Amino acid sequence: MADVALAAGVNKSTVSHVLNGTRIVSDSTRELVLEAISATGYRHNVVARSLATSTTMSLGLAISSAANPYFGDLIRAVEASASAAGYMLMLADTHDDADVERRVVEELLGRRTDGILLAPSVNAIDRALPYLESTGAPTVLIDRFVDAELDQVGSENTDATARLVEHLAEIGHRRIAMVCGLRGLPSTSERVDGFRRTVAALSLDDDPGLELDGGSDAARAEQVVHELFSGPARPSAVVVGNNAMTIGTMRALRRLDLRVPADVALVCYDDFEWADLFEPRLTAMEQDVARIGGIAVDLVVQRIRDPSRPARRQVLDPTFRHRDSCGCHLSGARPA
């Protein structure tokens, strides 16, 4: 910094103010400092700064299945919001494994991240969450809600899934299947509850065999959908629990030469960036991923600044995107 100050003809404190934004500096002085930084090749010593300030201006994001299209979108949203808040993001994939999750959380904190954003796994309540609570690390749970006194943000699942089933019933479907996500995840349980509730309320076919274990995996979903729709009593419609499984479901139906929606109506939870480019265009519940990521970062930054404030839970309503895969254009029906 002394070299930069000498080259720019200013004090070291002025260089610090330009770098850290701690005081207003005139445009001409700022330009001199930036030119000197470029000429000298100066870089912040992040390690030294973290030792001096006890902060690293970094956040850890521990999330399952980064290859899932939804989580890819969520990672981008969190990174954009973190960057805007002045934080670097460190990413780890938990693979929805409680032991891996506990290890990566420990490693992220070992790298002195200022806060943790976590999409909790099935057994997080027994492994990672008690550890995080014991350390007092600023933590926000993202996408999945659990019974814990921690900041949390995600989408509403139960009523949204019920709305998908109701829509299929409105246009005449009585035998409706659901491709369910990984068992034990709160989001899976909530979506299955919405499906079951509506099947019961509308006296639809309540055959237990219509609940398929898709495991939140495209290949698994393809397998179970192919088995069900190869049988003699196939349903006329299907609700898919997330976008990874929607891909597998579409593959299975294509293998069976079943057309969507002419032969099988399809609706799904989770929208795709390219869902309206599918043939047919997919009717889906769209989560506000950008808002979820922004709120998550805002919550963890507030928690870093004020560790004693009460925990908050924010539940966001997804948006119903009515397109073609439900088959309304074939029946002439429209959503209520």
Rank of each mutant, 00 (worst) to 15 (best):
108 L>A: 03
100 V>D: 12
115 G>R: 00
108 L>H: 05
122 V>R: 13
109 L>Y: 02
97 D>R: 12
92 A>T: 12
101 E>V: 07
95 H>V: 09
123 N>D: 15
94 T>Q: 03
101 E>W: 09
101 E>Y: 10
111 R>N: 15
124 A>T: 09
103 R>Y: 03
109 L>N: 00
112 R>A: 02
125 I>T: 15
109 L>H: 04
90 M>T: 05
90 M>V: 09
115 G>M: 02
92 A>D: 09
98 A>W: 06
122 V>H: 07
97 D>Y: 08
89 L>V: 03
91 L>F: 03
113 T>K: 01
113 T>D: 04
113 T>N: 00
118 L>I: 15
122 V>T: 15
124 A>W: 11
122 V>W: 08
125 I>P: 05
112 R>E: 01
107 E>R: 15
111 R>T: 12
118 L>K: 12
93 D>T: 06
93 D>V: 06
102 R>Y: 03
119 A>L: 08
113 T>R: 03
113 T>A: 06
109 L>A: 02
118 L>E: 13
108 L>V: 00
109 L>D: 00
119 A>H: 09
120 P>A: 13
98 A>H: 14
125 I>F: 09
114 D>W: 04
95 H>T: 08
99 D>C: 08
105 V>N: 06
100 V>Y: 06
125 I>W: 07
111 R>C: 11
102 R>M: 02
105 V>P: 00
105 V>M: 03
113 T>Q: 01
101 E>L: 05
121 S>M: 02
104 V>P: 11
108 L>N: 04
125 I>C: 09
107 E>L: 14
122 V>D: 09
97 D>C: 09
120 P>D: 11
106 E>Q: 15
123 N>M: 08
89 L>S: 05
98 A>S: 15
105 V>D: 00
107 E>I: 09
94 T>D: 01
121 S>C: 04
106 E>C: 04
89 L>D: 02
98 A>N: 07
94 T>C: 04
112 R>Q: 05
96 D>P: 04
120 P>E: 12
123 N>F: 06
119 A>D: 13
96 D>V: 01
101 E>G: 08
121 S>R: 04
91 L>A: 01
117 L>M: 10
101 E>R: 12
93 D>H: 08
100 V>K: 12
122 V>S: 08
95 H>K: 13
90 M>G: 04
97 D>Q: 10
95 H>P: 00
96 D>G: 05
114 D>P: 10
89 L>C: 06
98 A>F: 05
117 L>F: 03
121 S>D: 01
96 D>Q: 08
104 V>N: 10
92 A>Y: 10
